Computed example of a mutant assay.
Amino acid sequence: MVAALTFAAGCTVFGLAAPAAAAVPATIPLTFTNNSGRADQVYVYDIGTQLSTGRQGWADASGAFHAWPVGGNPPTPAPDASIAGPANGQSMTLQLPKFSGRIYFSYGQKLVFKLTTGGLVQPAVQNPTDPNRDILFNWSEYTLNDAGLWINSTQVDMFSAPYAVGVKAPDGTTKSTGHLKPGGYNGFFSALRGQPGGWANLIQTRSDGTVVRALSPGHGIESGALPATVMDDYVSRVWSKYAGSTLTVTPFADQPNTTYYGRVSGNVMNFTNGSGAVVTSFQKPDADSIFGCYKLLDAPNDLVRGPISRALCAGFNRSTLLANPNQPDTSSANFYQDAVTNQYARKIHAQMADGKAYAFAFDDVGNHESLVNDGNPQRAYVTLDPFS
């Protein structure tokens, strides 16, 4: 069973709870390669939660842990946790400790981190006053623990500087994900600009004209860049359909007999089990709940509501709920076919070399996420890819 590990400002990555047969060392090497084609100085950060103690902090290039000092209110500057990254065409080796965290990288400028009494304040560029708003940066999420390494390429919060991740297994093979198709970086932004309905407003540029990112649609709603009503038509059609028919959710691929049945009554979709007892209910969701897979589509770490919510969230984002009354629909050929859909996620997946991405929180439903893992990792990789 996969267990969520949360750190700092709420980033969630995944790792197995049970220990592996082979012992994972205290640190593993990470090869960080700069193939970006850019001349900017790159800065690298390894921040997160130390799994042995639960303390928040950062790791230096040797993998040594440094706890954050106590912050303040208002927030106080965090210690400089940056590591000078390799020049274009070069590589360097870092040591990853047992963390649940993020590997940030930025171009040309160091990121601004601050500390409150509750911990680290991470970049939140949907806020126009965030000091990192005009910095070109991105991050990977990872968990390294006694059961192995899980490392992803994520676009849950934004699409920005291109990169890929990888892990080397004991047999010498390397699994990687996150690479874009040739021309995929510019292709994504061109496609988003051409999408009517406010989607182009997700793109952020700085004063010199450089495109720095596209916000995820949830952050777009939060910042006013995307209309909050963008999914209303689809939601209303789903609610109308299942007022008169049944939505069947079989949340576990390995448990085909665990099935729940959804029917709409007024503003609520009630799910019953095979005995007809109501096990959970969902209010009619808004776009923010859909894109964030939270609020009205909250997914607690349980065995009933959470798994049903995951299937609903994926179905709304991929617009498969009307076409298929049996969920989750895990065939990518059926995704994003409705005119009302998560256009951001659609356009990201279209540009990925392997079709995989973390364009929304539960993009792993059906294994469509950009994640690699190994129970006995020999080495990890982060590769900064070309922009053109």
Score class of each variant (00 low, 15 high):
74 P>R: 03
217 P>Q: 07
16 L>I: 11
343 Q>V: 11
12 T>L: 05
146 D>R: 05
269 M>H: 07
363 D>A: 07
302 D>F: 07
41 Q>C: 06
77 P>A: 04
378 Q>H: 05
289 S>T: 07
7 F>C: 03
237 R>D: 14
15 G>T: 09
56 Q>C: 00
57 G>L: 00
270 N>L: 08
279 V>R: 04
241 K>Y: 10
136 L>H: 11
318 R>M: 02
117 T>Q: 13
387 F>G: 04
159 F>W: 14
241 K>Q: 15
249 V>Y: 02
70 V>F: 12
54 G>Q: 00
62 S>Y: 08
359 A>P: 03
228 A>K: 13
111 L>S: 12
109 Q>R: 10
383 T>R: 03
97 P>Y: 14
156 V>S: 11
254 D>K: 08
142 Y>I: 00
335 F>A: 10
148 G>L: 01
262 G>S: 00
72 G>S: 07
366 G>P: 01
199 W>M: 05
335 F>Q: 05
261 Y>D: 03
294 Y>R: 15
75 P>E: 05
18 A>F: 08
133 R>Y: 15
131 P>I: 04
63 G>P: 02
167 V>P: 00
8 A>C: 12
353 A>K: 01
74 P>T: 01
145 N>K: 03
187 G>Y: 08
329 D>L: 01
10 G>Y: 03
48 G>A: 02
201 N>C: 11
272 T>C: 00
218 G>V: 04
166 G>P: 02
336 Y>V: 02
193 R>C: 07
206 R>H: 09
363 D>S: 09
76 T>Q: 02
248 T>Q: 15
43 Y>I: 06
384 L>H: 12
211 V>D: 10
348 I>S: 06
132 N>T: 08
10 G>I: 02
369 E>F: 12
180 L>T: 12
162 P>A: 08
330 T>D: 12
337 Q>C: 05
387 F>L: 06
35 N>W: 06
86 P>C: 09
222 E>C: 05
46 D>C: 12
309 S>L: 07
164 A>G: 11
8 A>T: 10
22 A>H: 13
155 Q>M: 14
13 V>R: 13
83 I>K: 12
210 T>Y: 06
167 V>W: 01
234 Y>I: 10
359 A>E: 08
87 A>F: 11
179 H>F: 12
318 R>I: 04
252 F>G: 13
80 D>T: 01
247 L>A: 13
227 P>S: 15
196 P>I: 07
232 D>S: 06
200 A>P: 09
78 A>R: 00
329 D>S: 08
143 T>C: 15
146 D>C: 06
56 Q>Y: 05
291 F>P: 02
